[in-house]
Design a protein around this nucleic acid. Structure first.
Lengths: 165, 165
DNA sequence: ATGATTTACATAGCTTACTATGTAAATCGA
DNA sequence: TCGATTTACATAGTAAGCTATGTAAATCAT
């Protein structure tokens, strides 16, 4: 059925990623958990408290994406935030008792889905698959544009407004 | 920096898929095109007219996902719909002249991103990567639950309403 | 020490994806 | 042939991702 598309790494990777997400969610939905929660769970599974920036880096998502994920997890009673004594701009995020009680189930679900996905690969192929994926991620990440520090907005003074003559 | 996560096929696949999408969009944004348009472009590149159901199958997305993609593409002047003479429920979707003029650029962008992503793989590894991805997709697709035909809603008759005693 | 810059997070707006369900046309079965 | 079912699409609602940008705290440079 699928013909030419199986020749495109991008198409196949996107397809596989969506199937992974559906498979995970099918197993975790009853607990109110979802695929975007996984990196947060793993980063905080030992009871640690981390900043949003830290969690975004651990999940390799942008900051507003992690902000939205944490907002939903807080709404659903999975995380709590405490003020960061070292930095007034940050909070320290940790899992609630409820969420900590689900950590084992989360790990079982991810192990199960990963095993299922790789079931038709020989053991040596599984390592190869992961190492090729890592090379692909590295190459694509290098393609992303630099993110220079944002220009500071200077005190609005008509004569110095950026771009004005 | 990333350590344990590189051991999860699901995590790495999701990460790679997001990087693929960003890379494609960086190259096509100026033309008002995006990654979800690609399967539609390729399916209709020869001027063919196809139904929404056909396109959803070609893209391996659910019907409402394709409906939304086509709605945006129609809004942006990329596709047009004509009534299907053979079936009053369907339309036949085809690319506009504008979109047809972009087909070559779309193919160049996808080729470029795929080549970039696989640049650090040996030629033989590229084939292996695609074949492993195909096995993963097949295994995960087999995990998905059956989609039985939807129950017909019978004429509401109090005594026969589903679940009523 | 203070003004400028950078950083951490919040918010707005959009796309892509999913599930669930409504509606009308087509098809099936008795 | 006609009622029931199935199919094709539409719509509603939500999640998860992105970019762009606002704001306040922290830091830097003079």
């Amino acid at each position: 059925m699928p013909l030419e598309r199986t020749l495109s790494a991008g198409y196949m990777t996107n397809w596989a990623a969506r199937l992974f997400a559906v498979a995970i969610e099918r197993r975790l939905k009853a607990r109110g958990l979802s695929s975007a929660h996984l990196p947060v769970f793993f980063a905080l599974a030992d009871g640690a408290a981390r900043t949003q920036k830290d969690l975004a880096a651990a999940a390799a998502v942008e900051q507003p994406t992690m902000a939205a994920t944490l907002a939903r997890m807080e709404r659903d009673g999975l995380i709590r935030r405490a003020p960061d004594p070292a930095d007034g701009r940050s909070s320290l995020v940790s899992l609630t008792e409820t969420a900590l009680a689900d950590v084992d189930a989360v790990r079982r679900a991810t192990d199960e889905v990963n095993a299922l996905a790789l079931a038709d690969l020989a053991p040596s192929e599984r390592d190869i698959f992961l190492s090729l994926l890592e090379k692909v991620v590295t190459a694509l990440a290098a393609d992303a544009p630099e993110k220079p520090p944002r220009a500071a907005r200077r005190k609005a003074t008509a004569s110095t407004a950026d771009g004005s003559p």
